[in-house]
């Protein structure tokens, strides 16, 4: 199968060069995805770098990222392909009297009238691509079955045109926020990667990589405070993107060393619920 990476360590180092801080698990699974030619299902809380992983991998191997953003109601016509029916209607109207129906039929179901959607695009690509199927838990079970078919065969059959087979097996990442249980069949097909909040050291590295000009000291303090806050019993724990936003805010405010007051005043960047903010504010000013 694939041979895009030399080793797990190479994945990790490479990702770091494109500013993505992977842990051992993320790097191992990405490595295996290539070696085994299997899609990766990435699950985990919001804002922990699931989507970014696919983007960064594409970046790393110099591939084009093709993204299928999932939503409820997404169907074949938006995921795979659709016939351009407006154009087809016009064609039918124009030829109303001259051609036979079978001629018209053959004509309107040809390449010219085909609208390629992300899945078909990824299958037909000649250049290296990474396919990102983002937030797959939002689609209905029937659409999931469609994905499954494509991810097991890497081919698409269009009744009016025949079967199109992939020239290469692209790296495929599916992300999920776990709002519903995905089908067993889909899970069986994929390698599974649960991406959780990073540990303190990795979060600090992420902040250093993502926030220009931040000092080691401030990044360290931020990572520590965020870790402490995540340990509280909250409605919604701060995500990595919220940590980054917080760090940027502190930089804008010209803060070099956070004290309890400043932390409290900026907590709303980190936390979204009023009850969570109150809880964290109270905790930060007590030494337990």
């Amino acid at each position: 199968m694939g041979n895009r990476f030399d080793s797990v360590q190479a994945v990790r180092d490479g990702l770091k060069k494109v500013n993505y801080l992977a842990d051992e698990g993320i790097a191992s699974v990405a490595f295996l995805a290539d070696r085994l030619g299997k899609p990766v299902l990435v699950e985990g809380p919001a804002g922990t770098g699931k989507t970014q992983l696919a983007k960064s991998i594409a970046d790393l191997i110099g591939a084009r990222l093709i993204r299928l953003q999932c939503y409820e109601g997404l169907d074949e016509s938006k995921a795979l392909y659709e016939w351009n029916y407006k154009k087809q209607l016009l064609r039918i109207q124009a030829d109303k009297n001259s051609d036979s129906w079978s001629e018209v039929h053959d004509d309107i179901f040809s390449e010219e009238f085909l609208l390629t959607r992300p899945l078909l695009e990824a299958i037909r690509a000649d250049d290296p691509v990474v396919l990102l199927i983002d937030e797959v838990d939002r689609v209905e079970v029937e659409t999931e079955a469609l994905l499954l078919e494509i991810l097991s065969e890497y081919q698409v059959s269009i009744p009016e045109m025949g079967t199109i087979t992939a020239k290469q097996i692209p790296l495929v990442f599916l992300t999920s926020n776990n709002t519903r249980e995905l089908s067993e069949a889909l899970k069986r097909r994929c390698l599974y990667l649960h991406v959780d909040y990073p540990d303190m050291d990795r979060e600090k590295e992420i902040v250093l990589a993502k926030v220009d000009g931040i000092t080691e000291h401030l990044a360290d303090q931020i990572a520590r405070i965020v870790r402490s806050i995540r340990q509280l019993d909250l409605k919604k724990a701060p995500s990595v993107s919220e940590t980054i936003d917080w760090a940027r805010t502190l930089m804008l405010l010209g803060i070099e060393h956070i004290d309890a007051e400043q932390a409290k005043e900026t907590l709303h960047i980190l936390l979204k619920y009023q009850t969570d903010i109150a809880k964290a504010a109270k905790e930060l000013s007590s030494d337990k």
Partner: peptide, 22 residues
């Protein structure tokens, strides 16, 4: 696909293929 001495990667290889629920 994993060198035997890489104990961490070995564990992830098993985890990613055998455990599909966090």
């Amino acid at each position: 696909q994993i060198p035997l001495e890489d104990r961490e990667a070995f564990k992830w290889a098993l985890g990613a293929t055998l455990v599909k629920n966090a």
